[in-house]
């Protein structure tokens, strides 16, 4: 039972992060390797807002979440906008450089020590007992619930929302979308904002559960295979991919070797790339976009 809960929690973490990769990739065909750093930034923003709104933990959390949307949109407006039309490699590297930059700045501002936003907000993290003698921490449970909520909202938005449809249109054929009067910059900024929002949610909830250090982006790097296994342009794929990766990771760590934790996602990824490079649910696109 506990193993099952662990899998669900880990899968939720990966899924929540993976949908950020999917959003940006689907709309602008850019792989955002700074996603982990942006997620970590969200967690650190809670520290900042916690001291700003001392005594109002919910306000502080809300402010941090809103700020993360702004940060995401700003990343697009001030940086990625200049990379439209460049090589894929250049765009990816720009996000890598951005990640490096954010990491450096975070250490400069908040130091490299482990920090606990939950303490700063005076929030407890009790362990809940579930049926079958399984335990789950409060914030992990919140994370699972948030994940379900986020995916539900995103599905609805992309399927039925007017801007959701425009995002799909822009992702498929940006030139034509621009011709039809869709402001690509708005769509892309929206995608970046939403993606950073989901990432920040994941980061904040993880930080509330177990604190935050500079090594948090590694988790996002491990969530990336989840997005790819499911199919980089498919939301549903993100969920399924996360479940697969989390299951494999938890079981292998439990039964084989804890050291494997860092490579399992990438082993699964390689296997997937060999069998079906475009992922379980992804559309089989032309793979040569260099």
């Amino acid at each position: 039972m506990q193993l099952f809960i662990n899998i669900i929690v880990l899968a939720s973490i990966y899924a929540l992060i993976a949908c950020g990769y999917v959003l940006i990739y689907r709309v602008s065909r850019v792989l955002n390797l700074a996603h982990g750093e942006l997620m970590m930034l969200g967690a650190y923003l809670v520290l900042a807002t916690a001291s700003l709104f001392a005594g109002h933990p919910l306000v502080a959390l809300g402010a941090a979440v809103l700020l993360s949307i702004v940060v995401g949109a700003m990343v697009y407006v001030f940086l990625m906008r200049k990379m439209t039309g460049e090589m894929v490699l250049a765009a990816i590297l720009t996000t890598v450089a951005l990640g490096i930059l954010i990491r450096g700045v975070i250490v400069l501002v908040w130091s490299a020590q482990q920090q606990y936003p939950a303490q700063a907000l005076n929030l407890a993290n009790p362990s809940l007992t579930l049926v079958g003698d399984g335990h789950i921490s409060l914030w992990s449970a919140v994370l699972v619930a948030t994940n379900i909520l986020v995916y539900g909202a995103l599905f609805g938005f992309l399927r039925f929302g007017r801007w959701g449809m425009r995002m799909r249109a822009a992702g498929q054929n940006p030139l034509l979308a621009a011709q039809r009067g869709i402001n690509l910059h708005t769509v892309y900024a929206l995608a970046w904002g939403l993606s950073t929002l989901t990432g920040a949610l994941a980061g904040i909830l993880m930080a509330l559960d177990s604190g935050v250090t500079g090594s948090m982006p590694i988790i996002a790097l491990k969530a990336f295979p989840a997005a790819l296994v499911g199919g980089l342009d498919s939301l549903a794929g993100g969920l399924v991919g996360a479940l697969i990766i989390a299951t494999a990771e938890v079981l292998l760590i439990y039964y084989v070797d804890p050291l494997l934790s860092d490579v399992v996602p990438f082993l699964v990824l390689l296997a997937m790339l060999i069998v079906r490079p475009w992922g379980l649910f992804g559309t089989r696109e032309e793979l040569d976009r260099v």
């Binding site: 449809m165 799909r168 498929q172 034509l176 979308a177 011709q179």
Partner: peptide, 23 residues
């Protein structure tokens, strides 16, 4: 408004959605 030479429709959107997407 331009009708481009190639890739002139949104391939994964239905005809109705193609007509609904313009801003």
């Amino acid at each position: 408004v331009l009708v481009p030479e190639r890739e002139k429709v949104f391939q994964n959107l239905t005809v109705a959605e193609n007509l609904a997407a313009p801003v």
